[in-house]
Design a protein around this nucleic acid. Structure first.
Lengths: 197, 197
DNA sequence: CCTTGTCCCGACCGATCGTTCGGTTACTCT
DNA sequence: AGAGTAACCGAACGATCGGTCGGGACAAGG
C-alpha cells in the first residue's frame, strides 16, 4: 500500500503551511487571505480541504497534545524512582517539543477565545498536572529539595522548557544537537547553573 | 501641586483596562468594541483619549520596557562580582515583572505584525543581550558551570522568569510573597532542583 | 444668561473578516 | 472519447474591523 505522490494539497500539507503562518503572525492575526497567499492557492480552495480556519487550529494543537501525552505512556515515564521518571519526562518533553516545534508553539500560544482554544488549554493543563504529580512523588521520596514548593517548581520547569518555542530554531539533520539540548535542560533544571560550592 | 480627582477616563486609566483585555483575548483578538464594553464607554469615546488601538499597545509595552531597563541602572546591577550582579538582576527582573505584570505580559506576547510590535521586540532583545553579557562575565570569572553554553543558559533563565506571566496571579498586599518568589527563582536557577549530592 | 472646552454618544465609513457559491479546469477510469 | 470527480477559482455574502464625524450633555467662568 503506497501513498500516491501528489502535486496538490492534502489537509496535512496544507496544515504545515498554515501552522507556519499562524506562528509568524499569531492565529488571530492570520487571515484566510494570508493563508491562501502562503499556500499559493485561492482562499476558496482552502475550504475544499478543510472546513475552515478553526479546523486547522484544532488539527495543529491535537498533533502537539498527542505527542506530549504519548510521553507519559512510555516505559521510562512509568518505572524507576520518581526523580528519574521526572528527568526522563523532562528530556522527552524537550525532544517532542523540538520534533513537533511549530505545532507545540501554536499550542502554547492559544488564548481561549474559541471553544477549540479552551479545549486545548484544558488538555495542556492536564498534562502539566500529570507531571506535577511526578514531581510531588519525587519530593516525597526525598530526591528534590524540600524548601521549594512543588507547584511552583513545576511551573518554572515547564516555563523553562516551553520557552524553547520562542527561540530554538533547529538545524536540519541535527539529532545530536537535539539530544544535547534535552540533556542541558535537564542538567540545568536539576543541578542548577552555579559551580559546585 | 495636587492631581485633581476625576470620575472620567484618562489615557492612563483607559490603558489599564485595555491592557487587561489585551491579555485576556490577545491584541489581535481584541476589537475596539471589546474595549468599549470593558471600559463602559462608547467606541468613539476611546478616540477622545488615545489616537487608536496601536497607541494603547505602544504605551503598554513602553511601560514594561522602561521598568526592565531601569533595573540595569540600579547600583546592584553594576558592582560586585558578575555572578552576584546576575543574581541581583534575576531577582529584580522577577520583581518588576510582577509589579508591572499585565504590561510585561503584553510585551512578551507581541508577534511583530506592526511597527510598534517590531520596535518592542527589538528593545526586548536588547535587554536580553545586556543580561547575557553579565552571564558571560560571570562565566569568565569562573562562577558558572563551564559545561553550559552561555547563550543557551540566558535563554533558559529568561524562559523560566518570563513564564511567570503565564500563571502567576498576585495576591493583594503580598510584598513578602513577591520577594520570596524572586528568591525561589534565583535559588532554582543557580542551585538547581535536586537535593545536594 | 451665554460662551468655552471636556467628555461622551449614535451613526456611519471603507476595508477586511471568515465563509459560501456557481462554475471551470484537469486528471482518472472505463 | 466520454463520464466522473477531485482540485481549484473569482465573485460575492453578511458581519465585523479600526476609525471618523457632527453634535449633545454638562460643568466652569464671565
Amino acid at each position: 500500500m503506497t501513498t500516491a505522490k501528489r502535486d496538490t494539497y492534502t489537509p496535512e500539507t496544507l496544515l504545515s503551511v498554515a501552522v507556519r503562518v499562524f506562528n509568524e503572525r499569531g492565529y488571530d492575526g492570520t487571515s484566510m487571505e494570508h493563508l491562501s497567499k502562503a499556500a499559493g492557492i485561492s482562499k476558496s480552495s482552502i475550504y475544499h480541504h478543510v472546513s475552515g480556519k478553526e479546523e486547522l487550529l484544532r488539527r495543529a494543537v491535537s498533533r502537539a497534545l498527542d505527542g506530549l501525552f504519548a510521553i507519559l505512556d512510555e516505559p521510562g515515564a512509568g518505572r524507576g524512582r520518581a526523580v528519574e521518571r521526572v528527568e526522563y519526562v523532562t528530556r522527552r518533553t524537550v525532544e517532542v517539543l523540538i520534533a513537533e516545534l511549530p505545532y507545540v508553539t501554536l499550542l502554547l500560544r492559544v488564548r481561549g477565545n474559541t471553544g477549540t482554544e479552551r479545549w486545548a488549554m484544558e488538555r495542556r493543563r492536564e498534562f502539566d498536572h500529570r507531571v506535577s504529580e511526578l514531581l510531588r512523588a519525587a519530593a516525597d521520596e526525598g530526591d528534590l529539595r524540600a524548601d521549594v514548593d512543588i507547584r511552583l517548581a513545576t511551573r518554572l520547569l515547564f516555563g523553562m522548557i516551553n520557552s524553547l518555542v520562542e527561540w530554538y530554531r533547529p538545524h536540519p539533520d541535527a539529532t545530536a544537537e537535539r539530544e544535547q539540548l534535552a540533556e542541558t535542560v535537564a542538567h540545568l533544571a536539576f543541578d542548577g547553573l552555579r559551580t559546585a560550592r
